[in-house]
Simulated scan of single mutants.
Amino acid sequence: MKPHTALITGAASGIGLALAQRMAQAGHPLYLTDRSEEIFKVADALSAHGTQVWAGTADLAIEADLKRVARDALDKLQGCAILVNCAGMTLKVNGGPIPLEDLDIDAWERLHRVNLVAPMVMCREIVPQMAKAGYGRVVNVASRAGRMHVPPAGLEYHASKAGLIGASRALAGIYAKHGVTVNCVAPGRVDTPMCAATNADLLAQAKAAIPAGRFASADEIAASIEFLVSPGASYITGSCLDVTGGVYMN
């Protein structure tokens, strides 16, 4: 695969980190962003592969931060051919979903700003430049909770991920004629820090329901994303790739 410039959010851990590692090894110039200062250590480590890697911190609930890192990425990369929105958050109480009657609207709004609004702001800042160049690949990391009921996930998380899938399809329809594909990956349960925040009994129940009998690794999800941004996926747009070990079969 020919190296392309790429911007990855949520790249300090989990799926974002696994994807950054894969893409750095393949020689793609990268701009990585995360809320954590760890992102600078990640960038330094990945630079050892010989590719150019830049980093910037951002609170993805703040529009000004999103605009700043997007514009910095466009400047550093001299354009952006690949955008992958991996960053996300969930709300838990005692490792499980927050009951409806206890749901705080401020928390709901922050989660939606991170899980749904932030990817769309990043698309707003990056995709028109892709369209002008006649080439672009966008992948938004959704969740099986955007496709089906997932008991350990809260109402707010389901809503944000379903919205992300719908918004991605709308963007795909608008920008396909400009050479830009927009797709989602919907992971099932993945062995990441976000997964670790879930109640142990709920995790055991979740694993028992997976036909594959295990959780995914972050690298397996990253490999799926890597395919969607590759030339082999050039005729795939507006799709949601379910990577769930068989829990969700469409």
Rank of each mutant, 00 (worst) to 15 (best):
K67V: 15
L77V: 07
E109T: 05
A18M: 06
G50T: 04
R71V: 05
V53L: 09
I98E: 07
R113K: 13
V117E: 08
H112S: 05
L111D: 00
I82K: 08
T33N: 15
R35Q: 15
Q52P: 00
A55M: 01
G79M: 04
W54R: 11
A87W: 02
Q25S: 12
M23W: 03
E37F: 10
P99R: 09
A20N: 01
F40N: 01
A20K: 01
Y31I: 01
L60V: 07
F40K: 02
D102Q: 14
T51H: 10
K76F: 09
A118W: 12
A61L: 10
I82D: 00
A81F: 11
Q52A: 02
L111M: 14
T33I: 06
V84M: 10
T51L: 06
W108S: 02
V117N: 07
G56L: 02
P97D: 06
D72F: 01
A64Q: 14
A64L: 04
R110F: 14
L30C: 08
V114H: 00
A43N: 06
D75L: 06
L19Q: 06
D104E: 13
V53R: 12
L100S: 07
L111C: 03
V84D: 13
A45V: 10
Q52E: 08
F40M: 03
D44P: 03
L116M: 11
Q78M: 08
A55K: 13
L116I: 08
A18Q: 07
A26T: 08
K92P: 02
T90Y: 06
E63V: 15
L111K: 05
T51A: 10
I62Q: 02
D104Q: 11
I98D: 02
A87Q: 14
Q52H: 10
A73I: 03
A61D: 04
L111V: 09
I62T: 07
A64S: 15
E109Y: 10
T33D: 13
L77F: 10
K76M: 08
M23Q: 13
H28Y: 11
V117S: 12
L77D: 11
D65I: 13
A87I: 06
Y31A: 05
N94M: 08
W54K: 05
L111H: 06
D75Q: 11
A61M: 11
S47P: 03
L103K: 02
P99A: 09
A107C: 07
D34V: 04
K41T: 12
D34K: 12
I39Q: 15
A26N: 13
G56R: 14
G95C: 05
A26W: 04
K41L: 10
H28R: 09
M89P: 02
N94T: 03
S36G: 03
D106Y: 04
V42M: 04
G27D: 01
R22H: 03
E109D: 11
N85P: 12
M89W: 04
R22P: 01
A55L: 02
